[in-house]
Simulated scan of single mutants.
Amino acid sequence: MALQHLPAPIRERLLIEIYQQANDLDWEFLSNTEKTNQYRRWIEDPKVGGVLLSYGPEKDARVWIKDVPMKEYARAQEGIGTYVRYAVNRFQGPEEIVRAACGSGWVMKPDSVGEKPNHCYAIAGDATRYVCWGRAGTFRDLVWAALNEAIDSVERPAIVITTRNGETVSTAERTRQERVAQRCGADLRYLHREMIPNPDYLGAAGGGHGPSQPTLID
């Protein structure tokens, strides 16, 4: 049986296990080398590789871990996509981004969330704004997306640079980002977020952190 056709209960158990371990490891803060080493450890783990190797060769098992659960991990943490329910902790979702970018009176347009980069549309009455967000390292992609929107949009697009505990954006970097955003006709905001226990989590009850409010950084 190909790994793409794993029995549903087996697949779900694997997703829960891998996401639990990724959460414990703070996956998004690992270096590329550390991530490579972790893929090897997953293959050696009886609860992950030990299961996958019953359905296919090692090379296919490694590809499955990388291209199925871990390809979607960052989106799941954002509260986006079909893998959200496997994430132990996640951010509050696009709604908090819209509040940070646009302020009160604006809400997320239903079914408007997309990726590459993460984005959505915010609405207030008849007005519509494009909002995209990501970490500081994705600023170039965010600017390009906002610039493309600014050409045809009546409302100024908004870029939100997000940080979490352990991350900061230097004053020099912020100054340059603000100048670039201004030149491109986009509003720029900074939002410090903390994860909350995922209310839709399928695994054991309770995430790793208590609920908290995002902080809009002036």
Rank of each mutant, 00 (worst) to 15 (best):
E78I: 07
Q213T: 05
F91V: 03
V48F: 06
E78W: 00
Q182S: 14
I123C: 06
I217D: 07
V84C: 07
V180R: 06
I65P: 13
R90W: 08
L142I: 03
R85K: 11
T215H: 04
T138Q: 13
G50C: 03
A87S: 15
N165H: 00
K66M: 11
G49C: 14
I18R: 03
L216C: 08
R75Y: 01
D24T: 02
A74G: 04
R11C: 02
Q21R: 15
T128K: 09
N89A: 09
P199Y: 00
P211D: 09
W133Q: 05
L52D: 10
L3G: 06
G166K: 08
D152S: 09
E78L: 10
S212M: 01
P110Q: 00
K109I: 02
E58K: 10
T163Q: 05
Q20R: 15
A87C: 15
D152L: 08
I65C: 13
L188N: 06
A127K: 02
I18F: 07
Q213Y: 01
Q77L: 14
G93A: 15
E173H: 12
A101C: 07
R193T: 02
S212T: 05
Q177I: 01
G203P: 10
I161Q: 04
A205V: 02
N89K: 01
P7N: 10
Y19M: 04
N165Q: 01
E58F: 00
V88F: 11
A124N: 11
G210Y: 00
D187P: 00
R193P: 01
G49A: 15
A204M: 06
M108D: 07
R193F: 09
W27N: 03
S153I: 08
G49D: 12
Y19T: 02
D152P: 02
A74W: 05
I123E: 12
R179M: 13
K66H: 02
L147I: 11
E173D: 14
A172Q: 05
M108R: 14
D187S: 05
R156N: 06
E194R: 11
A61T: 12
E115P: 00
A127P: 00
D218M: 04
A204R: 14
F139Y: 15
N118M: 07
N198F: 13
A145M: 01
D24Y: 08
A74D: 03
R140M: 06
L52C: 05
A22R: 14
P214Y: 13
G137H: 14
L6T: 11
H209G: 11
P57N: 08
V88W: 12
Q38M: 14
Q20E: 15
G137V: 13
E58I: 07
D45A: 03
N37C: 00
P7Y: 02
R40F: 00
R13P: 02
I18S: 09
S54Q: 14
V131P: 09
M108P: 05
